[in-house]
Simulated assay, not measured.
Amino acid sequence: MKKKPSTIAIDGPAASGKSTIAEKLARELGYLFFDTGVMYRAVTLAALRRLGTVEDETAVSQLAAEVDIDITPPSKEDGRKYDVLLDGEDVTWEIRSREVEASVSQVSAYPGVRKAMTDQQRRIGLRGHCVMVGRDIGTVVLPEADLKIYLVASPEERARRRHQENLQRGLASDYSAILQAMIRRDQIDSTRQVAPLKPAEDAHIIDTDGLSIEEVLGRVRSLLEDCARAETDLNG
């Protein structure tokens, strides 16, 4: 019997499709879907609420080490893919606010914040049977993942996707503003000193421009089969 990879890391820039692909893949495999980015959003929300700013790196890092963030299966049928709990409070939708969106890259670049979140993410990932999504899973959080995938797409395509998501949720949306914010975020994420956004050396890169969700999933399934076949050959 072929053995499926137990830990799967899916990385890539914002709106590259990684969360959508990971959620569907996790459901197919019966694995935990863990979008690690929501943890940084939760810390950002906590900082905005309790500190009134994200500019004080020391204070934000201290807060990150103190707050209790948990990710659990969805408790409501309102479109959510999981519950995000901040010290026991359901903040699943609050972490998607414009204020959090504008500040999360800065917060996630703080070394103290990344360390606090990485430690917790590793504990979850190392349990196995997990599809982890983020920007540094394959390079920092779970470098020993059985399969590493890195999704890419042009800024224009990613901004279009985010714009459509907003419209579908009934939110006001400005494509040009989203595109500019996306480009700024890419710059911050790829040039930060700690855990910059980049594919792991052994990651499989998939360009999702022009591909449907099912076409991307098809490529991922092929990688799963290749990984399982290699494991079978290795073990005789």
Rank of each mutant, 00 (worst) to 15 (best):
R80Q: 10
M117Y: 01
L217G: 10
K24V: 13
K4T: 07
A42F: 05
D68I: 05
M132K: 07
P74L: 10
G125A: 10
R50S: 14
K3W: 03
P155T: 13
E99F: 04
T139A: 02
D146Y: 03
I213P: 13
V67G: 01
N235C: 04
A228F: 06
R127Q: 15
E99P: 10
V220S: 01
A228T: 08
D11C: 11
D70A: 13
M1W: 03
R41Q: 08
Y31F: 15
A65Y: 03
V133H: 02
D78W: 04
P5G: 01
V84L: 13
A177K: 15
K24Y: 06
T232Y: 06
D233H: 05
S16E: 05
K24C: 03
H204V: 12
Y175M: 06
D87S: 07
P155N: 05
T72A: 11
L29A: 05
L45G: 02
T20P: 15
P199Q: 11
L126T: 13
E94Q: 13
I149A: 00
E77F: 02
L85C: 08
D68Y: 01
H204L: 06
G125Q: 08
L86S: 04
A15E: 02
A26N: 08
E165W: 11
T7C: 08
I149Y: 00
D146K: 01
A22G: 14
R229L: 13
V220H: 02
D119P: 02
M39D: 13
A59V: 02
L224I: 12
K115V: 04
G52V: 12
I8S: 09
P199E: 10
G88M: 11
A59G: 03
C130Q: 07
E28F: 04
A59F: 07
R49W: 12
A195Y: 03
E156K: 09
A203T: 11
G125C: 10
E201Q: 13
V100K: 00
A181M: 06
R158L: 09
H204A: 14
A228P: 09
E215R: 11
P111S: 01
R184Y: 01
R135S: 06
I206Q: 09
S61N: 07
T58R: 14
E57R: 14
V38S: 10
A15M: 06
P5L: 05
V107K: 00
L171S: 09
L147W: 06
L126F: 14
D189P: 03
A116Q: 08
V38Y: 11
K76T: 03
G52A: 12
R96Y: 06
K148H: 08
K4W: 15
V67D: 01
A65I: 03
D87H: 03
L126G: 01
V104Q: 04
D78P: 11
C130A: 10
T232L: 07
E99S: 13
R135G: 09
P111A: 01
P199H: 09
I21V: 15
E57T: 10
F33K: 03
K18L: 10
W93M: 05
H204W: 07
R219Q: 15
I71L: 15
I213H: 11
S97H: 09
I178Y: 00
Y31E: 00
I124C: 04
G52T: 12
L45T: 02
E144N: 14
